[in-house]
Design a protein around this nucleic acid. Structure first.
Lengths: 411, 411
DNA sequence: AGTACTTCCTTCAATAATTCAAATAAGTGA
DNA sequence: TCACTTATTTGAATTATTGAAGGAAGTACT
């Protein structure tokens, strides 16, 4: 490369160089597979070693990749391994929940440097919540000895339907004040160089599971979040599947009982009203009041007359029959819906996360049973159903990876 | 290109030249958008006009593209339009149904030259059925003045679960004799140069609808086939979605009534047993026997004691209340399942085909109502629900296009 | 330690793909 | 007719890629 060209070296707004398609592919491969030698890259890219030497040389010069020691010799010269340059810039991942904000600051490889959970009310005005997000991120950057300019990527998940490219929420039931609020613009007020990626919270959890959790290497899977509601992130061909309007994965309002109770969505018998956390808690309280469960009744007394799904879970873990029955009912309904979706979509795996997934193993086993019983044999042959590997970190990991995969694409 | 190289010009087995990635992209664009000028191509490919001149020149020399006259001037020189060279070779599309084989021979653009329907029993031995397929194709080629060597692509759909890359059927319920039968190899005995593409029948129908029917330009949609069974072809990001084992779209065995009748799959209350053609026919006969419908009872007498779904349809068209109710019931169940899948998958459209879809408009309208009622508002905002545009031709069109898109990929 | 072999990486001339700028072709409209 | 516009072609310059040759850095065997 001549000196004249170097002067015209194009840089995107975030200060990172523009990469060619081959360079992007190389970086992607290293991200996906970990440190690679030039020979590995040549084989994976189907290019000659000579070309890869040139490409890798350029990427090292641009400080996108660095040499990180040597690999094991396989009978000859040891390979020099190339990895993502962790120090190229910082990535922030934000997972906004109904009552809390989870954040993490990561290096350029996606390794988390600092992790935070703050309480927040999503019903507050968006600029209030996002203002706090901005200052949390600034704070984390400062603690790493960095400044706002060093942030190169920012991903954020919000609990509502997102129109992905624009990052606008469309009629979010939980957070009406956020409808069409320009989230990206607001975040850019503090970090003008970054191009934030905004997505639905369940989508980013699925993304996290796909890139660093149990979904690594799995092309098609679901991530089910069971909490106050029930949502689903869908990974198709290793990417988040958002559907035509960004609403894909809305499994909470699939009908399981046409004569069931009315959901806040206006319809009767949605999975969400019948099987999510509040339903489990409610049925627990009913059982306690009816005298079907001493454990739950005791717990209810301590808890000023209330029970949570978690309480029902601990009762079940202690062998309480009523609690076990309640959880099994919920699991059966969820499994029944999942069976239909498995028939339709034939995923390789289903990962279950969200607050309610922590109430114990009984829920998982009934979900698993119900799903396997009602789905076709062919589609369940190799189906994995398990809890999320990342637990509460799925969201922030996914946000980080959404940001990472958007870092080199210009606004 | 030097003379020495021309001698080494690589050709694939089917006699077609190997194309580079850019060339493939160009051809794909012309296939998708119709005749294009070099300038159009340059813009679509994001290449300079000079490059496109070279690429187009090569493709014309290879006889993959041809100049087909001029476009309208927009104030300057008229563009020369490039189109696929129809005469480069023939494409055969085959749609094997339970009781019939539909075939078509097309030119290289996918334009059908001859169309045939033959009766056949899929329960026969596969070599017997496929032997007939081979000779039908040969016959059609001869009627075009061509020989077996002129076939460059062959696509075939079969009514059972297919493991796509290998083209093997896996435990097909309708056609046990075909289990793991090497369909591709058999077809190649007559057409050794082609690399046949084998897929599930519903998948190829969806493909047909995607490429030449109502699904043109729609990224994500379902094709529902209602006949003896109920199947679904899923198009995601403009491609057939097959899932992890090739069984995606198996909606017929989604449960709609846990206390319903037992399906041949072993489970109770599958959509298929309750809502497909045989269920409609059965309920029609019950109504006739109970004296609820004079029209159907009369029809039954003529038909030696039997009714078909179509008979119920004509009764409904004539205003018969019992028939209307039966069809509405079926439509409601299908719509109920579709609503769940719409929530989950957020497609832009649903196209309905298959034999039972011909029983009249009442079925469509109840399916539409039931789907829209139970799916979320956001996911149905822009949702199209309509009959297949291609009707009985969806299968052969899809087979042709599956073949076309495999023509330049080597075996 | 020496030798043969292997693997990994670099270099560089040759080749292929692409761009850019200029020329040419073929129209429109006043 | 002339000025202008759009489409295509051409060819020199640039960039990307290959392939062969060789150097670097290891292993394995003697």
């Amino acid at each position: 490369m001549t000196v004249a060209q170097e002067n015209f070296e194009t840089k995107s707004r975030n200060g990172l160089p523009h990469l060619s398609a081959v360079e992007l592919a190389s970086v992607g491969l290293v991200r996906k597979m970990g440190p690679l030698s030039r020979t590995d890259l040549a084989e994976l890219l189907d290019l000659s070693r000579g070309s890869v030497t040139a490409i890798a040389g350029n990427l090292v010069e641009l400080k996108v990749l660095t040499e990180v020691g040597h690999g094991k010799s396989e009978g000859g010269r040891r390979p020099k391994l190339l990895d993502i340059n962790a120090g190229l810039g910082y990535i922030a991942g934000v997972d906004i929940g109904a009552t809390s904000v989870d954040l993490a600051l990561a290096d350029f490889r996606g390794e988390i440097l600092e992790r935070r959970s703050e309480s927040a009310d999503v019903r507050d005005a968006p600029d209030q919540v996002l203002g706090r997000v901005n200052s949390f991120i600034t704070d984390m950057l400062e603690r790493q000895g960095a400044t706002e300019k060093d942030l190169v990527g920012l991903g954020i998940g919000v609990p509502g339907p997102v129109q992905f490219p624009s990052g606008l929420l469309i009629e979010p039931p939980l957070m009406p004040a956020w409808d069409s609020f320009p989230i990206k613009d607001y975040l850019r007020r503090k970090f003008p160089q970054v191009n934030p990626a905004v997505d639905n919270d369940v989508n980013i959890m699925a993304m996290g599971e796909a890139r660093v959790g149990g979904g690594k290497g799995i092309e098609n899977f679901f991530y089910i979040k069971i909490g106050t509601g029930i949502g689903c992130g869908v990974i198709v061909r290793n990417e988040i599947y958002r559907g035509s309007d960004g609403t894909a994965g809305d499994v909470g309002h699939i009908c399981v009982d046409y004569n069931g109770p009315i959901c806040h969505c206006g319809n009767a018998g949605c999975l969400e009203v019948l099987a999510a956390g509040p339903a489990i808690a409610k049925r627990g309280m009913e059982a306690a009041n009816k005298g079907d469960s001493k454990i739950m009744a005791d717990r209810m007394e301590i808890n000023n007359g209330k029970l949570t799904a978690k309480d029902v879970g601990s009762a079940a873990a202690a062998g309480d029959q009523a609690a076990l029955r309640i959880i099994a009912e919920s699991g059966k309904m969820i499994g029944g819906v999942l069976a239909g979706l498995v028939n339709f979509s034939n995923p390789r795996a289903i990962f279950i996360g969200g607050g309610v997934s922590k109430i114990g193993h009984h829920l998982l086993s009934t979900i698993r049973q119900a799903t396997l019983r009602r789905a076709t044999a062919l589609s369940t042959r190799a189906l994995i159903i398990d809890y999320s590997e990342l637990g509460d970190d799925a969201g922030v990991y996914g946000a980080i990876w959404l940001a990472i995969e958007n870092v080199f694409v210009s606004a």
